[in-house]
Design a protein around this nucleic acid. Structure first.
Lengths: 270, 270
DNA sequence: CGGAAAACTTGACAGGGATCAAACTTGTCG
DNA sequence: CGACAAGTTTGATCCCTGTCAAGTTTTCCG
């Protein structure tokens, strides 16, 4: 049996490349936490930096004020678990900042990461009474969560909200189909190129960086488990792309895409 | 580059194992078509055999009568295309009977089947203005379709309908995550076992067959493209399971699961 | 600053599944 | 019925990616 991990491990990744908003030292981190705990019912929805990206964009100012009453806002440090597979699915989680990974595991430790989520993304809705995935913080994250029972009612109270969430769900279903094509039919090189380009797209919307620069927040292991490969293969493919002159690296987490056109062609096997 | 198909092919599969409801000879087939064309606006929603399985189950008798006005009902023969990638996404399709495959292709012909759909399933909603997948009839199918513009309005007019479709969409998103775990991390044997068990589950709800009997409507090639493998590997794994005494075959499309427990264990890599 | 642990890279080798080829079986249709 | 086409199975061989191992770089933390 290949690719079975001998030991189940939950290790996370280095902090290199963590976006600036949570690149805090431990002191300011603690202060931040305290402020947040001081105000558990997040009355600051109105000023939420990820509001325009998230499901909340469907609400006007008054609706948001009401809606914020059922949410609480908190933080998780990198590598912490947000929710686990088989745990009772009480909440819908909404990411305000940072990166989260959603994964599933086989009993012998083989892991598949089914998605990376960023500011504005939510999770915890597409499941029955128990989560059928594990969500972990890749970087420090700022999240708000809503009781699922109440959120379902909100969808009825605010049809715009329901439609917005439905839209986002359909968009996600769309992209899972792309990911299935990738997992089932693409080569290692095509997978990595696809990944880099997708990351550029997603992160490009969230942070302002130099053109063609991508700050990859997750570890090589995470990338491997997302693309259905091993760490070693990921590493070798990075080297290969670098030798081809298609990418430039600065540490393991900052990548410059030197030739988007060539990378795009490689990504779809042309 | 491995597994790149030399020729793009749209071949379907033999008719062996097609469920009885469309195991008609060409004469009765034509008669059926004529009847259907005679009555394009499907006033027979009320008596629809897949109604209780489909999104329509959210509607009561009067609502269904209204709703049926925006649908038309028709048939496609096995191997025919229902809608194609990049084609304008005008309709939502609902399957009344038969099997449909949803697939995506790379330019060199490598294909990934992202799902098989059966009576009660719908498709065509999770996309922007153009379909990003191709839907083809695996067996003869009986489908009804709705203009997308009108269906969105129906979701508002009949909130139960909207919720039902949302539910079904979330359930589907769920299962795509299982499929990603399968594609990214399972071995050929585990993939096939998972597939057989999933088919037993799905088909068990639709047709009455002997306990542990599974009538697989699709070809080996389709199974391969669904599991991210090649036809040859599928065939070899079938043989292997047979030699292990876990399955019995009758032709290529009728399978008897002799040891569900053992198959289940193999499916998740225990 | 310094030492240990974690993360990443590189090399040698192996194997699961792909590829190529051919035989066999089943379905189609005149 | 009979012949051709399509689908399936089996065998021989290859190669991409996994596995195992070791070395290097980066991060963590006293």
């Amino acid at each position: 049996m290949f690719n079975k991990k001998q030991h189940v491990d939950f290790q996370g990744q280095s902090k290199l490349g963590v976006p600036p908003y949570n690149n805090t030292d431990s002191t300011s981190e603690r202060a931040f936490r305290k402020t947040s705990n001081h105000c558990p019912h997040n009355t600051a929805c109105e000023g939420c930096s990820s509001r325009h990206l998230s499901l909340c964009s469907a609400l006007d100012r008054d609706e948001l004020k009401d809606f914020s009453k059922i949410s609480i806002d908190y933080q998780k440090e990198a590598k912490q678990i947000i929710c686990s597979e088989d745990e009772e699915a009480k909440y819908l989680y909404n990411i305000r900042s940072g990166t989260v990974r959603i994964s599933k595991m086989l009993s012998d430790g083989r892991r598949q990461i089914t998605g990376f989520l960023f500011a504005g993304d939510f999770f915890g809705l597409s499941c029955k009474d128990r989560y059928n995935f594990t969500a972990e913080a890749v970087t420090n994250v700022d999240i708000c969560r809503f009781p699922r029972t109440k959120i379902m009612q909100s969808f009825r109270d605010y049809p715009n909200l329901g439609e917005r969430v439905f839209d986002m769900t359909r968009t996600e279903l769309d992209s899972t189909h792309d990911q299935m094509l990738l997992l089932g039919r693409k080569t290692a090189q095509e997978k990595l190129c696809s990944f880099l380009l997708a990351m550029k797209e997603k992160l490009g919307r969230l942070e302002v960086v130099a053109e063609n620069e991508v700050d990859i927040p997750m570890s090589r292991t995470d990338i491997a488990d997302y693309l259905g490969l091993t760490v070693e293969t990921i590493s070798r493919q990075f080297t290969k792309l670098h030798k081809k002159g298609l990418i430039e690296m600065e540490g393991a987490h900052k990548v410059f895409l030197k030739d988007i056109k060539a990378l795009s062609a490689l990504a779809i096997g042309d």
